[in-house]
Amino acid sequence: MSSKTLVQVGKVHIPEDADFRHFKSICEDNEGWKLEVNKNQTMVWTKANELSSFKMVKVRSVFDDLDAATLYDVLHDPEFRKTWDKAMLESGELCAINPNNDIGYYAIRTPGPMKNRDFVTQRSWLDCGFEKIIFNHSVNHSGRPMKKGVIRGTSYLTGYYIVKLDVNKTQLTYVSQSDPKGNLPAWAVNKLTHMVAPKVIQRIYKAAKTYSSWKAKNRPGFKPWLHPEQMMELPRFNPDDIVSSEKLAASSDSLEEDEGTCKEGDLKDEDY
């Protein structure tokens, strides 16, 4: 069995053990990565890759007072995400492929005059108890055509690796091998690495501290990622809904060359 992932942009693929091992190796192996940030138990690395001019980003944090199971629930729960992800414009699950794979939509707000982005991805997950993996890659579902003025980004392989280090000590690694497309200025890419990535991890941590009390009041028994029979609420996957990978490219309407006119001084830290 190959150690390389078989995941390809535009194609629905049911991951095998080798695919999850491949993602885990990306999260654990720092060879060839450049350390950009090392502060407050959070480290950020970048790495050039052959798929995009946009560098891969890896963030790793250790939480001393958070259990792995809660963090796993937080990263899965789409309703809870609406309470803490302030950059999210819209999200939703389009269909269930099987008990460990679905297809969903996510739209993100970006500081103006940069254009908003959206993604359509197949998400895959595996819970091995002391370690848990969630990753996604872009597909193109007919239920979510491209929108004028919104740039369709591409996720080549993006996700989370959660490791239980002790009873309430958890390590979270986030890896993004994606391309937001468009004409992002260089300073925006730098901000994404040094400021935005660590901020997102901290927001996830703060949200996780409130999850148990929130979930107790919001369908406490509903966790499809743990109870596969609950995924029956979603539409079933239809292969005919997956369109050709060429259509993943952003439309000419959304690729207006105006993002580079945005100056770093025009935005405040809270805009990120």
Rank of each mutant, 00 (worst) to 15 (best):
M1L: 13
S3T: 15
T5R: 01
G10S: 12
V12D: 07
H13V: 08
H22G: 01
K24Y: 01
E28D: 10
N30T: 10
N30G: 05
E31S: 12
G32Q: 05
E36A: 11
W45Q: 05
K47G: 05
K47P: 02
E50Q: 10
E50D: 12
S53L: 11
F54Y: 14
F54N: 07
K55W: 06
V57F: 12
V59P: 04
S61T: 15
T70L: 01
T70I: 04
L71D: 03
H76G: 05
E79A: 15
F80E: 04
D85L: 11
K86I: 09
K86C: 06
L89F: 01
G92E: 01
I97W: 08
G104I: 06
Y105Q: 04
P111S: 05
P111H: 04
G112A: 15
P113G: 08
M114E: 04
M114W: 09
D118K: 09
F119I: 15
F119A: 12
V120P: 07
V120K: 09
T121F: 05
S124E: 01
F130M: 13
I134F: 01
H137Q: 02
H137I: 04
N140L: 08
H141P: 05
S142E: 15
R144P: 05
I151A: 06
T154N: 08
S155K: 11
S155H: 12
Y156W: 12
T158M: 08
I162T: 12
V163Y: 07
V163R: 10
K169R: 12
Q171W: 04
Q171E: 09
Y174Q: 07
Y174W: 07
S178Y: 03
D179M: 02
D179Y: 02
G182L: 06
N183T: 15
L184V: 09
A186T: 13
K191L: 06
L192F: 15
A197L: 01
P198D: 07
K199T: 15
Q202I: 07
Y205T: 07
A207W: 04
A207D: 01
A208S: 14
S212H: 08
S212V: 09
S212Q: 10
W214A: 02
K217E: 14
N218S: 13
P224I: 02
P224T: 03
L226I: 02
H227I: 11
E229R: 08
Q230R: 04
E233K: 10
E233Y: 05
E233P: 03
E233C: 14
P239F: 03
D240P: 00
I242Q: 00
E246T: 01
A249T: 13
A250Y: 04
S252I: 14
D253S: 14
D253T: 13
D253Y: 11
E257A: 14
D258S: 04
G260S: 06
D266C: 07
D271R: 13
